[in-house]
Simulated scan of single mutants.
Amino acid sequence: MKQLEKIIESKVKIRFPDCDPFNHLNNSKYIDYIINAREDQLVEFYDFDIYKLAQQEGISWVVAQNQIAYLSPATLMETVTIQTQLIFCNEKTLVLEALMWNEDKSILKAILWSKFIHFNLKTKKSEIHSEELMNLFKQIENPLNEPIAFEKRVENLRFSNTN
């Protein structure tokens, strides 16, 4: 069986309509760029199409929580690199960590943790992941070395990025 990458990445260009008057990416748009990148990455790296799953099986995930730290502005027409990884999974929950970098990954722009709950679109209730989904998630899960608060993770990444 092919080993799946745990940290996946892609590049995207910051566009004019998403910027504020200072030509910085608007705060709310960071999440949009990251989630759009993750959706594309799931298809590209894992052949996992969440929209097809929603249409065919009536299951999806809803966002339960977002935590984001803005470290350096992303600017108009800049190409950024977005890295994502699944840092936690259980029978109903997924936690995504996403890092937005400048193109060569020398400047960390933002870090996002998103918590998703597995959801049945037909019953409108949360439900447990299937065995097939859990098998995929366990292959790609990349847990942090130790339990850590978001603020401490941001501090650690910021410190390691300055060395």
Rank of each mutant, 00 (worst) to 15 (best):
I87V: 14
D20L: 15
G58L: 11
I35H: 13
L76S: 08
E39P: 00
K6W: 10
D40K: 10
K52W: 06
I31R: 06
Y46T: 11
I35C: 06
D20F: 04
E91C: 00
P73N: 02
V63G: 08
M77N: 14
V80W: 05
I8S: 02
G58Q: 09
N27W: 07
S28G: 14
K11S: 15
Y33C: 03
D49L: 02
N23P: 03
A74G: 12
L25P: 13
V62P: 00
Q56G: 12
E5Y: 10
A64G: 15
L53K: 08
P21C: 09
I82V: 13
I87A: 10
V95L: 07
H24Q: 07
M77Q: 13
G58S: 07
V80K: 03
I14R: 03
L53V: 04
N23E: 15
A69L: 00
V12C: 01
A74M: 06
V43S: 04
Q56V: 14
R38I: 05
T84I: 12
I31W: 08
T75D: 02
Q41I: 07
L4Q: 08
T93E: 13
I35W: 12
N36F: 14
L4W: 12
A64F: 09
F45G: 01
G58T: 11
Q83N: 01
I68T: 13
K11D: 12
A54H: 00
V62M: 00
T93G: 12
V43C: 08
P21E: 08
E9C: 13
V62W: 00
D47C: 00
Y46A: 08
Y70D: 05
Q56H: 14
C89W: 07
Y70W: 11
A74T: 04
Q67A: 00
K52Q: 05
I31V: 14
C89Y: 09
I50K: 06
K13M: 03
L86N: 10
T93A: 09
V95R: 11
L53Q: 06
F48M: 04
